[in-house]
Deep mutational scan, measured.
Amino acid sequence: LKGVVVAGGVLAGAVAVASFFLRNKRR
């Protein structure tokens, strides 16, 4: 169960970083 929580956190972080980079590329 702990691994699932960690994986979810990593996935959420990756999505946040990806969206951040996409926003920067638009400018």
Rank of each mutant, 00 (worst) to 15 (best):
A7Y: 14
V15K: 13
V17F: 03
N24H: 15
G8L: 14
G9E: 15
G13L: 08
S19M: 08
G9S: 12
K25N: 04
A18R: 12
G3S: 02
V6A: 08
A7D: 08
R27N: 05
K2H: 05
V5A: 05
R23W: 03
V17C: 10
V10P: 09
G8Q: 13
F20L: 07
A14C: 07
A7K: 13
N24S: 09
V6R: 14
V10D: 02
V6D: 13
G9H: 00
R23I: 02
R26Q: 01
V5K: 08
V4L: 13
A12K: 15
L11M: 11
R26I: 01
V5D: 06
A14H: 13
V4F: 05
G9L: 02
G3T: 11
F21V: 13
N24C: 05
V15C: 13
R27M: 04
F20I: 10
K2Q: 02
V4Q: 14
G9Y: 03
R23M: 00
K25W: 07
L11E: 01
V6F: 00
V10A: 13
F20P: 00
A14S: 08
R27E: 03
G13K: 09
R23E: 04
R23L: 04
V10L: 11
S19L: 08
L1F: 03
V6W: 09
K25V: 05
V17D: 00
A14G: 01
L11H: 03
R27D: 02
K25I: 03
V15W: 05
S19I: 03
A14Q: 13
R27I: 08
A7G: 11
A14D: 01
N24I: 15
A14L: 06
R27P: 06
G8C: 09
G9N: 14
A7R: 11
L11K: 03
G8V: 11
V10K: 15
K25E: 07
A16S: 03
R23Q: 03
A16F: 13
L11N: 03
L1W: 03
G9W: 00
G3P: 06
G3R: 12
V10Q: 05
G13D: 12
A16I: 13
V10G: 03
G8D: 11
L1S: 05
A7I: 09
A7C: 07
G3F: 14
N24V: 07
F20G: 08
K2T: 15
L1M: 00
L22T: 07
A7E: 09
L11W: 11
K25L: 06
N24M: 14
G13I: 05
F21D: 00
R27Q: 06
K2G: 04
V15F: 11
V10I: 02
K2P: 06
R23V: 04
K2F: 06
F20E: 11
R27L: 04
R26H: 10
K25C: 06
S19C: 10
V17P: 00
G8F: 15
A16Y: 02
R26D: 04
R26P: 02
V4N: 13
A18G: 02
R23F: 02
G3D: 04
L1Q: 00
G13W: 12
N24R: 13
K2A: 07
G9M: 09
L11R: 05
A18I: 12
N24T: 06
V4A: 11
V10R: 14
A14E: 02
G13F: 09
L22D: 03
F21H: 06
A12V: 09
A14V: 09
G8S: 14
G3Y: 01
V10Y: 01
V15H: 12
V10C: 12
F21C: 01
G3N: 14
G13V: 05
G8E: 13
S19P: 01
G9P: 11
R26E: 04
A7M: 12
L1V: 01
